[in-house]
Every structure is written in C-alpha cells, then in structure tokens.
Computed example of a mutant assay.
Amino acid sequence: MRIAITVDVVAFEKQIRDWCEEAGGGIEINFFQKEPFIGPTKLDDSNPYWLAVKTAIDEL
C-alpha cells in the first residue's frame, strides 16, 4: 500500500500490528520495500530546482 506523507508511519504500523493481534495473532507482515520517512519537496526559495521551474513558468 502507498501511504500519504501526512500519516505517522510508526503509529500506522503499530495500528496494523495491533489489528493482527486482535484478529487472533499468527499473522505475519512482510514489507516488500520499507523506507524511512522523507519529507515532501519544498516549493520555496530553498529549492533551486523549484526556482528554475517557477522562473520558466513565470516567463511564459
């Protein structure tokens, strides 16, 4: 599943594990890919890529 960037992934994983236990246990969770949280790309003056895109769009 893909999780929104606004979700606390640690709390969400705990909730899923709690549900598995409530369902009677013996349920295994496998992660195909599990990455640490990376914040969203900033769309402000601190991002040179965004500034280049914004400048090009503003010129159009």
Rank of each mutant, 00 (worst) to 15 (best):
M1H: 11
R2V: 07
R2M: 11
R2K: 08
R2Q: 08
R2T: 08
I3F: 14
A4N: 06
A4M: 05
I5D: 06
T6N: 04
T6L: 05
T6P: 02
V7G: 04
V9S: 10
V9N: 08
V9G: 09
V10T: 13
A11T: 03
A11S: 06
F12Q: 11
F12A: 15
F12W: 14
F12M: 12
F12K: 12
F12V: 07
F12R: 10
E13K: 13
E13Y: 07
K14W: 08
Q15F: 13
Q15N: 14
I16M: 15
R17D: 12
R17K: 15
D18C: 09
D18P: 09
W19E: 15
W19T: 10
W19M: 15
W19Q: 12
C20L: 12
C20Y: 13
E21T: 12
E21F: 09
E22V: 07
E22K: 15
E22T: 05
A23L: 14
G24P: 07
G24Y: 09
G26Y: 01
G26H: 01
I27P: 08
I27F: 11
I27C: 10
I27G: 07
E28A: 12
E28L: 15
I29K: 03
I29Y: 06
I29P: 10
I29R: 04
F31K: 01
F31V: 00
F31I: 02
F32C: 03
K34M: 00
K34D: 03
K34R: 06
E35K: 04
E35H: 00
E35V: 03
E35A: 05
P36T: 04
F37T: 03
F37L: 03
F37A: 05
F37S: 02
F37Q: 02
G39K: 00
G39S: 03
G39D: 05
G39R: 02
P40C: 00
P40E: 00
P40M: 01
T41V: 04
T41H: 02
T41N: 02
K42I: 02
K42T: 03
K42M: 10
L43K: 05
S46I: 00
S46E: 04
S46H: 00
N47P: 14
N47C: 13
N47R: 05
P48Y: 07
P48A: 12
Y49V: 15
Y49M: 12
L51M: 14
L51C: 12
L51D: 11
L51E: 15
A52G: 11
A52Q: 14
A52E: 14
V53P: 02
V53W: 09
V53R: 08
V53F: 11
K54R: 15
K54I: 06
K54E: 11
T55R: 11
T55C: 06
T55S: 13
T55K: 14
A56I: 04
A56P: 01
A56K: 14
I57R: 14
I57K: 13
D58Y: 02
D58V: 04
E59V: 02
L60G: 13
